[in-house]
């Protein structure tokens, strides 16, 4: 949730104006934002705030609702774990009104629980289980209709795992890493190298470069006295 989350560098200017201003409530802008979402899925970009603006428009204008767009937004948010994006999106989904005219039956009620269980596995770092569930027959509908459109979905999930590993490990066995990434050992080695990690001689252990999270140090916190704590004393001394 740093400044790039707030406003990704890939966000075009017209989208930025839209998202920052009052025009974000204008239903006639929904097309622009939806197009931008598809641009994100094709180009491996991600812009949480712009996508939330779509959901906001759906919230206020139920007749705009497009379940495929919602599902794509949720899939995008899934790969932002452990940031809270997925939940932030769900928080804006209200119950649908039954008089909604859709051409086809609404896929969201079946897909949503699947996505929520996937999110739960990712957030709880159960990466091997995630791949098992994701690749099961039950989720065929999700893979064939949705994630297939998302360029680099698998790698995006792998990056979630990489982020978790990076902050927890200094060294990790390739087998374990392979189970997190759902790759064979050779591809895991390649993936680790691409990430910038070095390997030991026989390619069985990856070394993770030092970063603020995997450097630990026992410290003693000394107290810091701030001026306001002393104002009373100083004021008194000045008066005396």
């Amino acid at each position: 949730m740093t400044s790039t989350w707030d406003c990704p560098t890939t966000r075009p200017e017209h989208i930025d104006t839209l998202v920052q201003g009052v025009d974000r409530y204008n239903p006639s802008n929904i097309g622009i934002l939806e197009d931008y979402l598809y641009q994100q899925t094709r180009n491996q970009e991600y812009d949480c705030l712009a996508n939330l603006a779509i959901l906001k428009l759906y919230q206020f204008n139920p007749d705009l609702y497009n379940p495929d767009v919602v599902i794509n937004i949720l899939i995008k948010a899934l790969t932002a774990s452990p940031l809270p994006d997925f939940n932030l999106c769900i928080a804006l989904l209200e119950d649908r009104s039954p008089n909604l005219q859709l051409d086809e039956p609404d896929p969201l009620p079946t897909i949503l629980p699947l996505l929520q269980s996937l999110h739960d596995l990712l957030y709880r770092c159960r990466f091997p289980k995630f791949w098992e569930v994701y690749r099961s027959d039950d989720l065929k509908v999700l893979r064939e209709n949705y994630t297939v459109e998302y360029v680099g979905f698998d790698d995006a999930v792998r990056n979630v795992a990489i982020r978790a590993v990076k902050s927890t490990f200094t060294r990790i066995g390739i087998e374990r890493l392979a189970s997190y990434l759902a790759l064979d050992n050779a591809s895991t080695v390649a993936f680790a190298q691409k990430t910038g990690w070095s390997l030991n001689e026989d390619n069985t252990v990856a070394n993770i470069p030092p970063n603020p999270d995997n450097q630990i140090e026992a410290t003693v916190v000394q107290e810091n006295i701030k001026l306001p704590q002393l104002t009373k004393i100083i004021a008194h001394a000045a008066k005396a």
């Binding site: 957030y123 709880r124 978790a164 902050s167």
Partner: peptide
Amino acid sequence: QEMMVMKQ
């Protein structure tokens, strides 16, 4: 895996 959650 739980320890990764803890770290997170």
